[in-house]
Design a protein around this nucleic acid. Structure first.
Length: 499
RNA sequence: GGCCUCAUCGUCUAGCCAGGUUCAGGACACAGGGUUUUCAACCCUGCAACACGGGUCCAAAUCCCGUUGAGGUCACCA
């Protein structure tokens, strides 16, 4: 058998997700088991959502949890570059090839036109897929539009017939090409979509096994079609089970902390998190629950992966982490871990300027600053809601802060201040009303060190977690309600600009 | 809604492929007890599942079919 080469291909569009670490782990273990290579490739083809900071965060997060790669954007490799934004010419070339092979076609439809088409189709109870109106443009029409510099995308020409996918875990999965949309391969900005970039890179980087989440199963026919069109050998597909929320839906940040940095900042041991991920959908042949990644590699058996999704259970993760703490560490060793976490003089020195004026004895420090080293702060409900505000209004503000914070790749005092000011304007709250809520949500108390700096030092993951905890404390928000708030923010924001 | 995937204790799972050794084993959580100055840890005990209905077979959690349920997916996001 030729060399095993697998990859993790995250897109740098937000906080580094535990799901990424989960899939990375199984790829890594599979590679090491076969003396193969594990590759990290950054899929930053979405120009509007990608950010270099998010990319750096992914690398940091994976390193923290203990996963290393043999080739990647930071260390290079034989098939560099490993960042898709640096490979655009390649995708354009292959898109061109597809055009010549009649496997794809130019589509000049505007977003508005597509929108309209979709609503029309849904009114007629048709599936919302593209109706292929640009498929049969004549050479003259195309030439004319090109001449006029009309923007276009390149779409996959999906044929008739059936597509049979071989999945290592699921056997044969059959799809009718009728169900498959004429997927956009190359966007009008010249960047590829996932489907094109992914297939091109997997081929060029000689990826032998594609181990990815189950959510990719329905788009695999497109990928198979591309391999066939190019005449390339297909990798083996292995679709992993999904990580789930307690209610059984796909793990989401709305209901759970999903950022790897949250677990780091909340004081979980990386080896415990990694171990826990290794028991999601998998069990060692000897039944052992606490194991190192090396042990996992030593007797890894991919057929032992179970197919139902796994609920990510924080309680069991805590228990596992506890075992690592007391079974694998001396007091000295644990102290070192705490130091490298945030129990160190550098961190305290950072805090002291905020506290010096508020202290009369040294012992005043810790009680007021304990929240910096805590996971949860358990804010009291009655403290959370300002005097002249309702619970609902408070919920709106809290959720708005979460939204705004999510959109910021950086986390500084100035940005935090800006988020708070903006949110207050949107909901017509006084700044001190907003900060009052935040003091309680973030620190658990009304009296604490200055808010903006505290939030900065605490970090975005922990802040977000506490904000969501506060929202839960006030009764929580449904998916629909969150969407409503999102819309409302949008409307109010536009009004602010116009008035 | 269409398509696809999946289906063992509340949760993670073993057993299923190669049907009998299983009135289904372990772990988390929970409850009770022990130990301990307290708490935690630790030890013991308990609670608790083969989604349902058909078939095949001497025998089915295990094989087949159907039903139901859950999830995923249907973007110029990945």
């Amino acid at each position: 058998m030729s060399e095993v080469r697998v990859r993790i291909a995250p897109s740098p569009t937000g906080a580094p997700h535990v799901g990424t670490a989960y899939i990375a782990l199984f790829n890594y273990v599979f590679a090491k088991q076969h003396q193969g290579k594990f590759i990290l490739r950054i899929e930053d083809t979405d120009q509007t959502r990608s950010h270099p900071v998010y990319e750096e965060n992914i690398l940091q997060a994976l390193r923290w949890i203990g996963i290393t790669w043999d080739e990647g954007p930071d260390i290079g490799g034989q098939y560099a570059p490993y960042r898709q934004s640096e490979r655009t010419e390649l995708y354009q070339k292959y898109a061109q090839e597809l055009l010549e092979k009649q496997g794809a076609y130019r589509c000049f439809c505007t977003p508005e036109c597509l929108e309209q088409m979709r609503t029309e189709r849904s009114q007629k109870n048709l599936s919302p897929k593209y109706d292929g109106r640009c498929r049969n443009l004549t050479q003259e029409e195309i030439a004319k539009k090109l001449e006029a510099n009309e923007p276009y995308v390149i779409r996959l020409k999906v044929p008739e017939g059936k597509c049979v996918i071989q999945d290592r875990l699921r056997g044969q999965v059959e799809y009718d090409y009728q169900e498959v949309d004429d997927q956009v391969l190359l966007k009008s900005d010249g960047f590829p979509t996932y489907h094109l970039a992914n297939v091109v890179d997997d081929h060029l980087m000689k990826i032998s096994h594609v181990i990815r989440g189950e959510e990719w199963l329905p788009s695999t026919p497109k990928h198979v079609l591309l391999y066939n069109l190019f005449g390339w050998e297909k990798p083996e597909f292995i679709h992993m089970p999904l990580l789930l929320n307690p209610d059984g839906s796909k793990l989401s940040k709305r209901k759970n902390p999903t950022s790897i940095f949250y677990y780091r900042d909340a004081g979980y041991l990386p080896e415990a998190l990694l171990n826990y991920l290794g028991m999601m959908g998998y069990s060692r042949p000897n039944g052992q629950e606490k194991f190192t990644i090396e042990e996992m590699i030593s007797d890894f058996d991919i057929s032992r992966i179970s197919l139902g999704g796994s609920v990510f259970d924080l309680k069991k993760l805590r228990w596992l982490c506890g075992r690592y703490m007391r079974e694998n560490h001396s007091a000295e060793a644990l102290c070192k871990r705490m130091e490298s976490w945030r129990m160190n003089s550098a961190f305290i020195t950072q805090l002291l300027p905020l506290m010096m004026e508020r202290m009369e004895t040294l012992s005043d420090f810790m009680p007021k600053c304990a929240f910096f080293w805590a996971n949860e702060v358990d804010p009291a409900e009655e403290l959370l809601i300002p005097a002249k505000k309702t619970k609902e209004e408070t919920l709106n503000v809290l959720q708005s802060i979460v939204f705004k914070a999510e959109q910021e790749p950086y986390w500084t005092k100035a940005i935090i201040e800006n988020i708070i000011r903006k949110t207050s304007e949107i909901w017509k709250w006084k700044i001190r009303e907003t900060t009052g809520v935040l003091f309680v949500a973030i620190t658990g108390k009304k009296v604490a060190p200055p808010l903006y700096e505290s939030m900065e030092f605490l970090g975005p993951s922990l802040c977000r977690y506490r904000l969501v905890q506060a929202i839960e404390k006030l009764g929580g928000l449904t998916k629909e309600k969150i969407r409503e708030i999102e819309k409302e923010i949008d409307i109010r924001e536009k009004n602010l600009i116009t008035t």
